[in-house]
């Protein structure tokens, strides 16, 4: 079920928006999550979001399936910023508008894993 990183995601990561400096990654180990201030949404899901949004958001887990969601951009943006009590943390302090744009683009381009 798990394949290599999806081309769409890789493309998205490559086109990811410039971070305004609100998220700084520690550099103690490993490859940085972002280079030149760009948010790597694929890594973001593998690090944080995937705890609930299984398989990078492709299937339902603790949180809902994100792939092919019918929710509007505005709804998703609001949910990322403000969260939902007892279900999803609020990330308004973590992400700029541009970051959230990148996350929404990631969600919109999710495809089933071909692995």
């Amino acid at each position: 079920m798990f394949g290599t990183t999806l081309p769409a995601v890789a493309l998205l990561a490559g086109l990811a928006c410039v971070m305004p400096g609100t998220v700084r990654m520690a550099t103690a180990q490993g490859a940085p999550a972002q280079e030149g201030g760009k948010l790597d949404v694929n890594q973001l899901f593998a690090g944080t979001c995937g705890w609930c949004h299984s398989d990078g958001g492709r299937v339902a887990g603790k949180g809902p399936k994100l792939m092919d969601t019918e929710r509007s951009d505005e709804f998703i943006r609001n949910r990322i910023r403000n969260g939902k009590e007892g279900a999803m943390p609020a990330f308004g302090q973590m992400f700029s508008d541009a970051d959230i744009d990148a996350i929404i683009k990631y969600i919109r381009t999710l495809k089933p894993d071909e692995g």
Binding site: T22, R24, G30, A33, A46, G47
Partner: peptide
């Protein structure tokens, strides 16, 4: 997936 710890402005998963 390789990740890097996020500690600013607040620690993340």
């Amino acid at each position: 997936v390789k990740t890097t710890p996020v500690t600013q402005p607040q620690v993340q998963l």
